[in-house]
Design a protein around this nucleic acid. Sequence first.
DNA 1: CCTACCGATCGGTAGG
DNA 2: CCTACCGATCGGTAGG
Lengths: 198, 198
Amino acid sequence: MQRADTGARSREVILREAVRLFSRKGYTGTSMRDIAEAVGLLPGSLYAHIDEKEGLLVEIVNRGIDAFLDAGDVVVSTPAPPDLRMRALIRAHVGIIAENLEQTSVVFHQWKHLSAERRTVVVDKRDRYESMFTRVVDDGIAAGVFNAGMNARIAVLSILGILNWVPEWLSPNGPEPVDEVADRLTDIVLVGLYGRRP
Amino acid sequence: MQRADTGARSREVILREAVRLFSRKGYTGTSMRDIAEAVGLLPGSLYAHIDEKEGLLVEIVNRGIDAFLDAGDVVVSTPAPPDLRMRALIRAHVGIIAENLEQTSVVFHQWKHLSAERRTVVVDKRDRYESMFTRVVDDGIAAGVFNAGMNARIAVLSILGILNWVPEWLSPNGPEPVDEVADRLTDIVLVGLYGRRP
DNA sequence: CCTACCGATCGGTAGG
DNA sequence: CCTACCGATCGGTAGG
């Protein structure tokens, strides 16, 4: 019953510190020596637990984006009306950000430093995630719930912009509950500044 | 009438290539040797024209953010109704992005690599710019044009999210004119997906 | 703007 | 996981 998984545990510690440092200093601005110092190892000792620096980034980015995909899949598989599905997507999205602020910020900003092949995998996942929002907007227009006259592509890009910006200002321990924040964002998305609602 | 300003001209060439490289590889991911090769000099020769690497970033970021501030000042000094001022702010913002995509992307993503004192200057400018949007939203609520029930702070953060995301997808040579794109973004901001408008 | 170079730091490895 | 180290690359400089 003792720790037979010290190796895996060390790896998690390294990943945790890498997330912290990558989010603060960027991937290219963080050295393996920075990470080693943060976890209390000598630089060369890191390589007893990991293969290469980029492997850390790959794992962090993929874990992060998979969290969004998994949460989105749950929402998309429900048969709720488009506006309620949009609210659920935004709640799920903001919830994941709140649970893991630094990881999300690495996912959003550091994936560009991945090698070409690894970047392709990430971009494909991101496209799949974005298509969930496109689907909801298109469904809403088809159902007569959303404005048929709007530019659906630009509407989706606006929503993604709102959501991608959230990690820059959200404080998970702030006064308002996270779901409350998500719902106020959804209000803006649905009714805008004018605010006439059905 | 000949070029007496070769020095200043070389400096502009260096800045132009630095913008390109910083936007593609990031500030910390770009070496002075990368820049030297791009402008056709040997690495050490760059220092006949510039003082230090960070000086390049300082100048790029400040030029970029000043463009937004100057354009915003023009809009804010007009007495138009809040919704029209919002439309004008968004048009100005998208226009500047379209004119200088790579510079904008450096402004948005690389300012974090500035030293503490220089970063403070940039953050102050950014706060001033953001306050223009806050002012318009507050004016709109006070005038009864915008929904008094919304969370104004979150509304402003949503607008900034939309605008900060634009450099990631705008193609200045795309099918729709840039002002058209800006107006469709404004539509979303004002009336949302439901789209009831006054 | 080039030649020639500086000390520091980089990601990573061999051997134990 | 440490010792000891590798070649490559970093930002920047002296002197011309």
